[in-house]
Nucleic acid binder design. Structure first.
Length: 245
DNA sequence: CCATTAAAGTGGT
DNA sequence: ACCACTTTAATGG
């Protein structure tokens, strides 16, 4: 089932897919509160799918295949603007839900998604999931809560993109990554390695500006960089820069 | 080991 | 912010 390294990149479909009825019941944030009956239904319907790092999971505009619950790994959710430039919407972590379309007649992916690491997701067919939403009010409510929180974050970020300086936006992007995936060790090494381009796409700037701001912050002792590895040495100073203090 | 390519960094406009 | 150029790192024979 494991493809060779040579054809990894060409893969569009998940490298791994199976019906998995004896996996432990999902412990995703949204599903934690739904009824036993509902969990059993999901358990029967679900398929576990895997994607390699760098693989595309969703392509915006394509028909939505259903809903994905992120089990393991990290996923970048983004839109592509008129110039073909990526705009990063958010980073998903285990427990998050990805790929839900609100259009019930002709469901379409509203965002694109790629795996930042080897990733495992749990897939539930779109129509079946909508049916479950209709039958389990608690599930629907949890979903509402989840997207309400996401919407709030997105609103805050679009406000920032419009008003902040480049340095502030990059600092904010670093804090955003930290809040999404955390950091390891005393040095607070970010648990996600992004290209300068990706950081730019998150901060609403260019990769060149990101390079410059990063060396600037490094000289000020707020961060340390080693290739794509970034240490948040002075987190509170960064948060202050980002207006989060 | 070297050659090719992609990404990072830098300076000028 | 954008472009052009240099440097560095990663990849593959």
């Amino acid at each position: 089932m494991q493809p060779s390294a040579a054809n990894k990149k060409q893969l569009v479909e998940p490298f791994y897919e199976l019906s998995c009825h004896n996996c432990p019941v999902l412990d995703c944030s949204v599903l934690r509160h739904c009824t036993q009956d509902c969990l059993e239904k999901i358990d029967k319907l679900k398929k576990v799918v895997g994607f390699f790092k760098g693989q595309r999971i969703l392509l915006e505009g394509n028909p939505a295949r259903g809903v994905y619950f992120l089990l393991q790994g990290k996923v970048k959710l983004f839109k592509t603007d008129v110039r073909g430039q990526e705009v990063i919407i958010r980073f998903a972590k285990p427990g998050d839900i990805v790929g839900l379309s609100v259009n019930t007649e002709r469901p379409e992916n509203e965002v694109s998604a790629t795996a930042m690491e080897d990733t495992m997701l749990c897939h539930v067919n779109h129509d079946a999931f909508v049916e479950l939403l209709n039958s389990d009010a608690k599930l629907a409510f949890e979903l509402l809560r989840f997207y309400r929180a996401e919407l709030h974050k997105t609103e805050m970020r679009s406000l920032k993109l419009a008003t902040m300086t480049v340095q502030e936006k990059v600092a904010d992007a670093l804090v955003t990554i930290y809040e999404a995936y955390g950091a390891e060790g005393k040095q607070r090494t970010l648990c996600l390695e992004l290209s300068r381009q990706d950081i730019g796409n998150l901060a609403g700037t260019t990769k060149e500006q990101v390079s410059k701001v990063l060396t600037d912050l490094k000289n000020k002792g707020m961060i340390d960089t080693n290739g794509k590895q970034i240490d948040l040495i002075n987190l509170s100073a960064l948060m202050q820069l980002a207006g989060l203090a």
